[in-house]
Design a protein around this nucleic acid. Structure first.
Length: 483
DNA sequence: CGCGAACGCAGTATTGCGTTCGCGGTGCAATACT
């Protein structure tokens, strides 16, 4: 078995050895176990389902949260020479969809959103097909988005009960014990095998800096990107601020663009591509930016606010330093940041009046979409309430949503506490995810003592080494291609 | 909730002040229109 795996690894992917955790995960999958795998960003998660795909007899279904992520992975597989790969999503025309649906079993790797999986004709088709493996990519989304944003994530359990259920693999970079439980519940896992790598990223150095006023934040960020270079991401809390900062920094001569959900899909893809191609050095973005951005040499992640949870923070800073070289995660906060964070994360929640309004309109047989066009409810409200009121009584729904809202507020306080107290940031993050930190790197974080000058030197040195390495690697791949 | 921009007013300057208004994250799919 082991020999066989290495053979496939080399022949299909061109690697001589596995990275930490990969082999164990793949062996569990081939052993027909349900698996929850937690691998830090950049540790080769996709290989964990791609390789078994070549060994297992039938297809692999990958549930993916973002269209851009699907497109990326499809392209990646195509580059490896795989033709039997497809993303079944709304980029397809109705005709293309019908055609594809009729010949879906021809494909080896099929990417879908949870929303698409819930569609009746997709359900029926997948019921009739042999499936070897189901993968939940970025599985923390089940917990993070399912309850109050994209309820189709919570419908996966019901969906799974209607197909001949193969083993399931859940992949993520960040999950607490609670999130792991959520994942296994909603993916109907009985006793999943856990493969958990250390979440600590020793080459990421943390800093939290208090700023006396909102107005001074920009000047401080400017100073920051002048002294410790990019490429990097600046996270802001609003779309407008992302645009304003990007404009101001662009005027100062930085190669930068903004990125947020208010932009066209095309523009967003363009910015991401420019960043990956080193045509710009900075992206100033809301939390819309990041998932699926496979850029290895991100040197800085700057925050202009307090993130809405430790999990979000870990995801965002985790995008730095995938190449292993020293990187900086620096966060600027003012004491009043939390007010806006609380407002933004809880504002969308349907309250009791929304819930009763929705319930009454359903009982009267009215279409809830009317309430949207009257401006009484948002689309998200309707989606969330449709989900909960179909499963819970009205009073239970009110209570559940109130609790969820309260949890959101608590998550902000947890984040704030990590920044404000005097303890090591790294240690607190690692412990938040239920792990133990064995050792701290030099220049660990702003609370342990951080010398940014030293970081700049060492990061330059490491980048130089890496460029040499990748040159050798490129040559070896070239020869492989000729053979 | 809390901030900043825009507005309105006074009334003889190109500013000052109080008030109102608008804004504030994350995505899918499908539809309508060019």
């Amino acid at each position: 078995m082991t020999l066989n795996l290495h053979k496939v690894l080399f022949e299909k992917f061109g690697y001589a050895s596995f990275r930490a955790g990969q082999q164990e995960i793949i062996e569990s999958i081939l052993n027909k176990e349900d698996v929850v795998a937690i691998l830090p960003t950049g540790m080769g998660k996709s290989l964990c389902y791609q390789l078994p795909g070549y060994i297992l007899p039938s297809c692999v279904i990958i549930i993916s949260p973002l269209l851009s992520l699907m497109q990326d992975q499809v392209e990646q597989l195509k580059k490896l020479g795989e033709k039997r790969v497809v993303a079944f999503n709304s980029f397809l025309t109705p005709n293309e969809k019908q055609t594809l649906l009729q010949q879906l079993e021809r494909y080896k790797f099929i990417f879908l959103s949870p929303e698409m999986l819930m569609q009746e004709q997709v359900k029926i088709k997948l019921q009739s097909m042999p499936i070897s493996l189901i993968v939940a990519d970025e599985a923390h989304c089940i917990s993070q988005w399912g309850y109050d944003f994209r309820p189709d994530y919570l419908r996966l359990g019901e969906w799974l009960s209607h197909i001949s259920r193969p083993p399931i693999l859940a992949l993520t970079a960040t999950a607490t014990k609670h999130v792991i439980e959520d994942i296994s519940t909603h993916l109907t896992m009985q006793q999943p095998t856990l493969h958990i790598q250390s979440l600590d990223r020793p080459n990421i150095h943390y800093a939290a800096v208090e700023i006396d006023s909102q107005e001074n934040k920009f000047e401080r960020i400017l100073k920051q990107i002048e002294s410790f270079s990019g490429p990097g991401i600046i996270y802001t809390q609003s779309r407008r601020k992302a645009d304003v900062y990007a404009q101001k920094l662009s005027d100062k001569g930085f190669r930068i663009a903004s990125y947020h959900a208010g932009m066209d899909q095309i523009d967003r893809m363009f910015v991401q591509q420019q960043f990956l191609n080193n045509e710009i050095d900075w992206v100033c973005a809301t939390n819309a930016f990041g998932m699926g951005v496979h850029k290895d040499d991100i040197r800085q992640v700057i925050h202009d606010h307090i993130p809405s949870s430790v999990a979000n923070y870990a995801q965002e800073v985790g995008r730095a330093g995938r190449d292993g070289s020293d990187s900086l995660a620096i966060l600027f906060y003012t004491k009043d940041d939390e007010d806006l964070s609380i407002f933004i994360t809880t504002n969308d929640f349907p309250d009791e009046s929304h819930i009763r309004l929705f319930d009454e309109s359903i009982k009267k047989g009215l279409n809830p979409n009317q309430l949207i066009s009257q401006g009484l409810l948002t689309e998200t409200h309707v989606r969330i309430l449709t989900f909960w009121l179909a499963r819970k009584k009205i009073n239970e729904t009110i209570e559940i949503l109130q609790q969820l809202k309260q949890q959101k507020v608590e998550q902000i306080f947890q984040m704030k506490d990590i920044l404000w107290n005097s303890l090591c940031i790294r240690q607190q993050i690692v412990e938040f995810f239920g792990q133990k930190l064995n050792s701290k790197p030099l220049n660990c974080c702003s609370k342990c003592g951080l010398n940014i000058e030293e970081l700049i030197d060492s990061s330059k040195e490491h980048v130089r080494e890496l460029k040499l390495q990748s040159w050798e690697k490129r040559i070896s791949l070239l020869f492989k291609g000729i053979e």
